[in-house]
Amino acid sequence: MTNLYLLLISFLFILFRSSSSSIINPSKVKQVSWKPRAFVYEGFLTEEECDHMISLAKSELKRSAVADNVSGKSKLSEVRTSSGMFIPKSKDPIVAGIEDKIATWTFLPKENGEDIQVLKYEHGQKYDPHFDYFTDAVNVAHGGHRIATVLMYLSDVEKGGETVFPSAEVASRHKTSKSDDDLSECAKKGIAVKPRKGDALLFFSLYPTAIPDATSLHGGCPVIEGEKWSATKWIHVDSFDKIVGGGGDCKDQNENCERWAALGECTKNKEYMIGTPELPGYCRRSCKLC
Protein backbone atom coordinates (compact mmCIF):
# COMPACT_ATOMS: atom_id res chain seq x y z
CA MET A 1 0.00 0.00 0.00
CA THR A 2 2.81 2.38 0.87
CA ASN A 3 4.61 1.68 -2.41
CA LEU A 4 1.39 2.27 -4.36
CA TYR A 5 0.85 5.56 -2.54
CA LEU A 6 4.39 6.73 -3.29
CA LEU A 7 3.99 5.71 -6.93
CA LEU A 8 0.78 7.73 -7.17
CA ILE A 9 2.39 10.80 -5.59
CA SER A 10 5.36 10.54 -7.96
CA PHE A 11 3.05 10.28 -10.93
CA LEU A 12 1.05 13.35 -9.89
CA PHE A 13 4.27 15.31 -9.28
CA ILE A 14 5.61 14.45 -12.75
CA LEU A 15 2.22 15.25 -14.31
CA PHE A 16 2.13 18.63 -12.56
CA ARG A 17 5.70 19.50 -13.55
CA SER A 18 5.20 18.49 -17.17
CA SER A 19 1.72 19.89 -17.68
CA SER A 20 2.94 23.32 -18.79
CA SER A 21 5.13 21.92 -21.55
CA SER A 22 2.94 18.99 -22.62
CA ILE A 23 0.06 21.33 -23.33
CA ILE A 24 2.07 23.10 -26.05
CA ASN A 25 0.75 21.83 -29.36
CA PRO A 26 2.49 23.24 -32.47
CA SER A 27 -0.45 22.26 -34.67
CA LYS A 28 -2.54 24.93 -32.94
CA VAL A 29 -0.14 27.70 -33.99
CA LYS A 30 -0.91 29.64 -37.16
CA GLN A 31 1.30 32.20 -38.88
CA VAL A 32 -0.34 35.61 -39.08
CA SER A 33 2.51 37.50 -40.71
CA TRP A 34 6.17 37.12 -41.57
CA LYS A 35 6.91 40.86 -41.59
CA PRO A 36 6.55 41.28 -38.66
CA ARG A 37 6.91 37.74 -37.35
CA ALA A 38 3.51 37.09 -35.76
CA PHE A 39 1.74 33.87 -34.77
CA VAL A 40 -1.56 32.93 -33.11
CA TYR A 41 -1.88 29.95 -30.77
CA GLU A 42 -5.54 28.90 -30.71
CA GLY A 43 -6.66 27.83 -27.25
CA PHE A 44 -3.40 28.73 -25.53
CA LEU A 45 -5.25 29.41 -22.27
CA THR A 46 -8.08 27.41 -20.75
CA GLU A 47 -11.35 29.10 -19.86
CA GLU A 48 -10.46 28.71 -16.18
CA GLU A 49 -7.08 30.43 -16.68
CA CYS A 50 -8.75 33.34 -18.48
CA ASP A 51 -11.40 33.77 -15.79
CA HIS A 52 -8.79 33.50 -13.04
CA MET A 53 -6.70 36.37 -14.40
CA ILE A 54 -9.79 38.55 -14.83
CA SER A 55 -10.81 37.85 -11.24
CA LEU A 56 -7.34 38.84 -9.99
CA ALA A 57 -7.45 42.09 -11.94
CA LYS A 58 -10.98 43.38 -11.39
CA SER A 59 -10.44 45.13 -8.07
CA GLU A 60 -7.01 46.54 -9.00
CA LEU A 61 -7.70 48.25 -12.34
CA LYS A 62 -6.31 51.74 -12.97
CA ARG A 63 -6.16 53.96 -16.04
CA SER A 64 -3.43 52.65 -18.39
CA ALA A 65 -0.35 54.77 -19.11
CA VAL A 66 2.31 54.93 -21.83
CA ALA A 67 6.09 55.43 -21.64
CA ASP A 68 7.37 58.90 -22.49
CA ASN A 69 9.74 58.72 -25.48
CA VAL A 70 12.34 60.99 -23.83
CA SER A 71 12.23 60.41 -20.07
CA GLY A 72 10.91 56.86 -20.14
CA LYS A 73 8.47 57.71 -17.35
CA SER A 74 4.84 56.57 -17.43
CA LYS A 75 2.22 59.13 -18.37
CA LEU A 76 -1.47 59.21 -19.20
CA SER A 77 -2.34 59.68 -22.85
CA GLU A 78 -5.38 59.59 -25.13
CA VAL A 79 -3.32 57.21 -27.25
CA ARG A 80 -4.26 54.51 -24.73
CA THR A 81 -7.64 54.61 -23.02
CA SER A 82 -7.91 51.19 -21.37
CA SER A 83 -7.59 50.34 -17.69
CA GLY A 84 -5.20 47.74 -16.34
CA MET A 85 -2.97 46.29 -13.62
CA PHE A 86 0.06 44.00 -13.27
CA ILE A 87 -0.01 40.49 -11.81
CA PRO A 88 3.31 39.71 -10.03
CA LYS A 89 5.28 36.74 -11.34
CA SER A 90 4.31 33.41 -9.77
CA LYS A 91 1.56 35.08 -7.75
CA ASP A 92 -0.15 31.70 -7.50
CA PRO A 93 0.13 28.26 -9.15
CA ILE A 94 -2.18 29.21 -12.03
CA VAL A 95 -0.21 32.35 -12.91
CA ALA A 96 3.07 30.42 -12.57
CA GLY A 97 1.72 27.76 -14.93
CA ILE A 98 0.80 30.39 -17.52
CA GLU A 99 4.30 31.85 -17.31
CA ASP A 100 5.75 28.37 -17.81
CA LYS A 101 3.63 27.90 -20.92
CA ILE A 102 4.78 31.23 -22.33
CA ALA A 103 8.45 30.32 -21.79
CA THR A 104 7.93 26.90 -23.36
CA TRP A 105 6.17 28.30 -26.44
CA THR A 106 8.50 31.23 -27.06
CA PHE A 107 11.78 29.52 -26.06
CA LEU A 108 12.59 32.70 -24.10
CA PRO A 109 13.66 32.68 -20.41
CA LYS A 110 11.04 33.50 -17.79
CA GLU A 111 13.40 35.96 -16.12
CA ASN A 112 13.41 38.06 -19.30
CA GLY A 113 9.70 38.74 -18.98
CA GLU A 114 7.86 41.54 -17.21
CA ASP A 115 4.91 40.89 -14.93
CA ILE A 116 1.73 40.04 -16.84
CA GLN A 117 -0.39 43.12 -17.49
CA VAL A 118 -4.16 42.57 -17.57
CA LEU A 119 -6.15 45.14 -19.54
CA LYS A 120 -9.84 45.93 -19.84
CA TYR A 121 -11.24 47.82 -22.83
CA GLU A 122 -14.82 49.10 -22.66
CA HIS A 123 -16.91 50.55 -25.48
CA GLY A 124 -14.85 52.95 -27.61
CA GLN A 125 -11.59 52.30 -25.76
CA LYS A 126 -8.48 51.54 -27.82
CA TYR A 127 -4.70 51.72 -28.09
CA ASP A 128 -3.40 53.66 -31.08
CA PRO A 129 -0.63 52.08 -33.22
CA HIS A 130 2.68 51.98 -31.34
CA PHE A 131 5.89 49.97 -30.93
CA ASP A 132 6.68 47.73 -27.98
CA TYR A 133 10.44 48.38 -28.24
CA PHE A 134 11.71 51.53 -26.55
CA THR A 135 13.30 54.74 -27.81
CA ASP A 136 14.46 56.03 -24.41
CA ALA A 137 17.61 55.07 -22.53
CA VAL A 138 15.85 54.58 -19.18
CA ASN A 139 13.70 51.62 -20.22
CA VAL A 140 16.32 50.05 -22.49
CA ALA A 141 18.74 49.93 -19.55
CA HIS A 142 16.37 47.57 -17.75
CA GLY A 143 16.55 44.27 -19.60
CA GLY A 144 17.26 45.83 -22.98
CA HIS A 145 14.66 46.19 -25.70
CA ARG A 146 11.44 44.20 -25.63
CA ILE A 147 12.10 41.48 -28.17
CA ALA A 148 8.71 39.75 -28.10
CA THR A 149 5.15 40.22 -26.93
CA VAL A 150 2.64 37.54 -26.00
CA LEU A 151 -0.88 39.00 -26.05
CA MET A 152 -3.46 36.66 -24.52
CA TYR A 153 -7.17 37.24 -25.12
CA LEU A 154 -9.19 36.62 -21.96
CA SER A 155 -12.64 37.24 -23.46
CA ASP A 156 -14.51 37.22 -26.73
CA VAL A 157 -15.48 40.61 -28.18
CA GLU A 158 -18.74 40.96 -30.09
CA LYS A 159 -17.32 43.57 -32.48
CA GLY A 160 -14.07 45.52 -32.69
CA GLY A 161 -11.12 45.20 -30.33
CA GLU A 162 -8.88 43.55 -32.93
CA THR A 163 -5.10 43.75 -32.82
CA VAL A 164 -3.98 45.32 -36.09
CA PHE A 165 -0.55 45.60 -37.74
CA PRO A 166 -0.94 48.57 -40.12
CA SER A 167 2.64 48.36 -41.47
CA ALA A 168 2.71 44.60 -41.97
CA GLU A 169 3.68 43.23 -45.35
CA VAL A 170 0.43 41.84 -46.71
CA ALA A 171 0.88 38.56 -48.60
CA SER A 172 -1.64 37.60 -51.26
CA ARG A 173 -3.21 34.98 -49.01
CA HIS A 174 -4.08 37.69 -46.45
CA LYS A 175 -5.67 40.16 -48.86
CA THR A 176 -9.13 38.59 -48.67
CA SER A 177 -9.30 39.37 -44.95
CA LYS A 178 -9.58 43.08 -45.74
CA SER A 179 -13.11 42.49 -47.09
CA ASP A 180 -14.13 40.35 -44.11
CA ASP A 181 -17.41 41.78 -42.80
CA ASP A 182 -16.58 40.40 -39.37
CA LEU A 183 -13.73 42.92 -38.96
CA SER A 184 -14.08 46.56 -37.95
CA GLU A 185 -12.93 49.36 -40.26
CA CYS A 186 -9.89 49.85 -38.03
CA ALA A 187 -8.87 46.21 -38.48
CA LYS A 188 -9.11 46.45 -42.27
CA LYS A 189 -6.19 48.91 -42.31
CA GLY A 190 -3.65 46.08 -42.03
CA ILE A 191 -3.26 42.48 -40.96
CA ALA A 192 -5.53 41.94 -37.97
CA VAL A 193 -6.21 39.34 -35.30
CA LYS A 194 -9.69 39.07 -33.85
CA PRO A 195 -9.78 38.53 -30.07
CA ARG A 196 -11.08 35.10 -29.12
CA LYS A 197 -11.10 33.88 -25.53
CA GLY A 198 -8.10 31.65 -24.84
CA ASP A 199 -6.13 32.52 -27.99
CA ALA A 200 -2.68 34.11 -27.74
CA LEU A 201 -0.81 36.29 -30.22
CA LEU A 202 3.00 36.16 -30.27
CA PHE A 203 4.89 38.77 -32.27
CA PHE A 204 8.49 39.94 -32.36
CA SER A 205 9.48 43.61 -32.15
CA LEU A 206 13.13 42.99 -33.08
CA TYR A 207 14.75 41.18 -35.97
CA PRO A 208 16.98 38.20 -35.06
CA THR A 209 19.87 40.69 -35.32
CA ALA A 210 18.32 42.63 -32.39
CA ILE A 211 17.53 45.62 -34.63
CA PRO A 212 14.02 47.09 -34.10
CA ASP A 213 11.46 45.94 -36.66
CA ALA A 214 9.38 48.91 -37.85
CA THR A 215 6.75 46.56 -39.30
CA SER A 216 5.89 45.49 -35.72
CA LEU A 217 3.83 48.70 -35.36
CA HIS A 218 0.53 47.56 -33.88
CA GLY A 219 -2.59 48.86 -32.21
CA GLY A 220 -5.73 47.80 -30.38
CA CYS A 221 -8.84 48.73 -32.37
CA PRO A 222 -11.75 50.43 -30.53
CA VAL A 223 -14.28 48.11 -28.95
CA ILE A 224 -17.58 48.57 -30.76
CA GLU A 225 -19.78 46.00 -29.00
CA GLY A 226 -19.08 44.19 -25.72
CA GLU A 227 -15.90 44.52 -23.70
CA LYS A 228 -12.38 43.20 -24.16
CA TRP A 229 -10.10 41.62 -21.58
CA SER A 230 -6.51 40.79 -22.46
CA ALA A 231 -3.24 39.92 -20.73
CA THR A 232 0.18 40.95 -22.03
CA LYS A 233 3.59 39.46 -21.35
CA TRP A 234 6.47 41.62 -22.64
CA ILE A 235 9.78 39.77 -22.99
CA HIS A 236 13.19 41.48 -23.11
CA VAL A 237 16.50 40.52 -24.68
CA ASP A 238 18.05 40.25 -21.20
CA SER A 239 16.88 39.47 -17.69
CA PHE A 240 14.20 41.89 -16.49
CA ASP A 241 14.72 40.65 -12.94
CA LYS A 242 18.27 41.99 -12.85
CA ILE A 243 18.85 45.06 -10.64
CA VAL A 244 20.16 47.89 -12.80
CA GLY A 245 23.25 49.40 -11.18
CA GLY A 246 24.38 52.98 -11.46
CA GLY A 247 27.99 52.25 -12.29
CA GLY A 248 29.53 52.89 -15.70
CA ASP A 249 31.42 49.60 -15.89
CA CYS A 250 32.40 48.54 -19.37
CA LYS A 251 31.66 44.85 -19.59
CA ASP A 252 30.00 42.26 -21.77
CA GLN A 253 26.35 41.51 -21.12
CA ASN A 254 26.26 38.22 -23.03
CA GLU A 255 28.50 35.18 -22.63
CA ASN A 256 28.72 34.85 -26.44
CA CYS A 257 30.15 38.35 -26.97
CA GLU A 258 33.75 37.22 -27.43
CA ARG A 259 32.79 34.65 -30.04
CA TRP A 260 30.53 37.10 -31.89
CA ALA A 261 33.27 39.73 -31.90
CA ALA A 262 35.68 37.21 -33.44
CA LEU A 263 33.13 36.65 -36.21
CA GLY A 264 33.06 40.37 -37.04
CA GLU A 265 29.75 41.26 -35.40
CA CYS A 266 31.22 44.45 -33.89
CA THR A 267 31.14 45.85 -37.43
CA LYS A 268 28.18 43.95 -38.86
CA ASN A 269 25.82 44.53 -35.93
CA LYS A 270 26.99 47.74 -34.25
CA GLU A 271 23.61 48.58 -32.74
CA TYR A 272 23.57 45.46 -30.57
CA MET A 273 27.30 44.97 -30.01
CA ILE A 274 28.47 48.57 -29.46
CA GLY A 275 25.40 50.78 -29.26
CA THR A 276 25.70 54.51 -28.58
CA PRO A 277 26.66 56.62 -25.53
CA GLU A 278 22.94 56.97 -24.75
CA LEU A 279 22.09 53.31 -25.44
CA PRO A 280 25.22 51.20 -24.79
CA GLY A 281 25.52 47.89 -26.59
CA TYR A 282 25.88 44.47 -25.01
CA CYS A 283 29.44 43.54 -26.05
CA ARG A 284 31.48 46.70 -25.53
CA ARG A 285 34.41 44.93 -23.87
CA SER A 286 34.78 42.31 -26.60
CA CYS A 287 34.58 45.08 -29.20
CA LYS A 288 37.59 46.67 -27.41
CA LEU A 289 35.82 49.87 -26.37
CA CYS A 290 37.25 49.64 -22.85
Rank of each mutant, 00 (worst) to 15 (best):
E158Y: 11
L4H: 03
K233D: 04
F204D: 08
A261N: 04
E99A: 00
E271F: 07
S20L: 05
H174V: 07
E265T: 03
S286G: 13
V79C: 13
D51Y: 11
Y5E: 04
Y272M: 10
C287E: 09
V66G: 08
G190P: 05
L183T: 08
R80D: 07
V140H: 10
S179M: 11
D128M: 12
G161S: 03
C50E: 08
A168C: 01
D136V: 03
L279P: 00
S184P: 01
I87L: 06
G246D: 12
G281V: 11
A67F: 14
H236M: 06
V140R: 15
P277C: 09
K268M: 10
K89V: 07
Y5K: 04
S205H: 05
A214E: 14
W105K: 10
Q253A: 11
T2C: 05
G161W: 06
I191A: 06
Y41G: 00
W260V: 09
F39G: 00
A214S: 07
H236D: 04
R196L: 00
A200F: 02
F44T: 03
E255K: 15
L263D: 14
T104N: 05
K75D: 13
K251S: 14
K126S: 04
V237N: 02
Y133T: 10
G226E: 08
R80A: 06
E158L: 13
T163P: 03
S21N: 11
G248K: 11
L61D: 06
D115Y: 13
G248V: 13
H123W: 14
V170T: 14
T276N: 08
E114W: 02
D199T: 09
D51W: 11
F13P: 03
S172H: 06
E49F: 10
S230T: 15
R259Y: 15
A171P: 08
K126F: 13
N256H: 14
S205A: 09
E255W: 12
V79N: 15
C221F: 07
E185C: 09
W260D: 07
D68G: 05
A168H: 10
G161I: 12
L61H: 09
A210I: 11
T106D: 09
R284S: 13
S10H: 08
S216H: 02
K288L: 04
G160Q: 08
H174I: 10
I14V: 07
W229F: 03
S33M: 05
D241R: 03
L7D: 02
P129R: 15
H218Y: 10
D252W: 07
F204A: 00
S10D: 06
A187W: 13
P88L: 07
V140C: 07
S20N: 06
E111K: 13
S177C: 04
L61G: 02
A231K: 12
G144R: 09
F39P: 01
Q125M: 10
A65Q: 14
F16W: 08
F44W: 04
V223N: 04
L4G: 00
K89P: 06
P208C: 12
Y272N: 11
H218P: 01
S59V: 04
